[in-house]
Design a protein around this nucleic acid. Structure first.
Lengths: 224, 224
DNA sequence: ATTACTAGTAGACGAGTAA
DNA sequence: TTTACTCGTCTACTAGTAA
């Protein structure tokens, strides 16, 4: 009977991998390993023998310790374990917080938000009729990096339309919050926006509702 | 002696979590659980008893099986494990922003930060000598959730020591920033901290440097 | 079918020791 | 110091049984 891989053996294998055993040989003794896995040196030694016998580690035993490497087979075992933990925690809700300062826009937002086709779509997808006017926020350095994560989230498509011989472009919208107010980050599909500025629609005049003015710090939460 | 969490118990806890035990109660019997963890129903039953006794799971035992939920404490244990696997395989850049309000601490931070052994370790690992005094922040709801991700990051170990017949405990520290100032989130290893409060060390008196007072909003950036 | 006892046993543990 | 053996103990397993 070939002995099964016990949970303790796996724990020992993981410990070696954390020490860097997947990238190259790590030096350890039964004593030090026993301390980290919470056992006697004898037991640690027996674990290493078992792991070697089952082909999960390679090692060279010296009089003063041993050099241990996790084999490809051992790495595969660990990867299976890792993937199980990813199933527990991996696809949890994404939550990104952007922090920036309030700035003045060009007043274009007010115009676009007054157009019925846009208003209708925001009402349908965000659950509120947008206040005619948008909030422009200049992001801090860390938030610019954070913003890139938003690309992976599910944006709402706001369709363009034609009216009075003019074409109004499409946009993408991401639901978010400022304080208790539901908002939406709006990004035109065609024109290129600066990466440090976001534009938001909201059901109310946020400058009044939150009592904020230019250069004030604003925190935007994206929960998905 | 309270029985330690064995590798087998952890394996059982993980199995429950994979079945969805972190999100809600999962229905299982000792038989089915025993099959998946490769043991007899009796052993599976004993595992569940042990996990319940140590507060890692909640359960309601019925005549036809049991409903099992992983507790917050159990989830924390799993997250630590997950973070070790992330250290082996994952290498993605994590960036977390916590937002909360400044509150007054108990003044203990000032005392601890004045102790030379702690000062030395912070200087060595964070690159600055901590200001004698800590900043306490009460996190918002979204940030409490975000905080759990921090478990996956690499914390610095601050070793405890003994002086004047008193034992000073170990702590974990995570480098972060508030504005342009480098800081560190400090969590004692032993004593249990409220999940909505974080304590930070910094090279300067942040209340003065940032001009902030109690109840002001503070944004903490963790880049790793 | 379940859970969770008790009982008997197999095997894993750490101390001691040799190389 | 190391590794890895032997050996005695005691833990932890499974089978059987009751509820």
């Amino acid at each position: 009977m070939v002995r099964m891989l016990t949970a303790e053996d796996l724990q020992c294998l993981k410990t070696i991998a954390v020490m860097g055993g997947c990238r190259g040989p790590v030096f350890a003794s039964s004593q030090t390993l026993g301390t980290t896995i919470g056992s006697s040196p004898q037991t640690a030694s027996r674990r290493l023998q078992a792991l070697e016998r089952t082909g999960l580690i390679d090692r060279s035993v010296n009089p003063d310790g041993q050099h241990i490497t996790v084999t490809a087979q051992g790495e595969e075992v660990l990867r299976r374990e890792y993937s199980e933990y990813c199933r527990i925690f991996g696809r949890e809700e994404t939550s990104v917080t952007l922090v920036g300062t309030l700035i003045s826009g060009l007043g274009e937002g007010r115009y676009y938000m007054s157009l019925e086709p846009y208003k209708q779509q925001f009402l349908e997808h965000l659950g509120f009729e947008p206040f005619p006017g948008t909030l422009n926020i200049r992001l801090g350095q860390a938030s610019i990096r954070q913003r890139k994560k938003l690309e992976q989230l599910e944006w709402i498509e706001i369709k363009g339309f034609t009216a009075d011989d003019r074409t109004f472009g499409s946009a993408r919208c991401l639901p978010c919050r400022i304080g208790k107010w539901p908002c939406g980050i709006v990004v035109p599909v065609r024109s290129h926006y600066p990466e440090d500025i976001i534009e938001l629609v909201s059901p109310v005049a946020l400058r009044d509702a939150l009592g904020i003015k230019d250069m004030d710090t604003v925190t935007v939460e994206i929960l998905q």
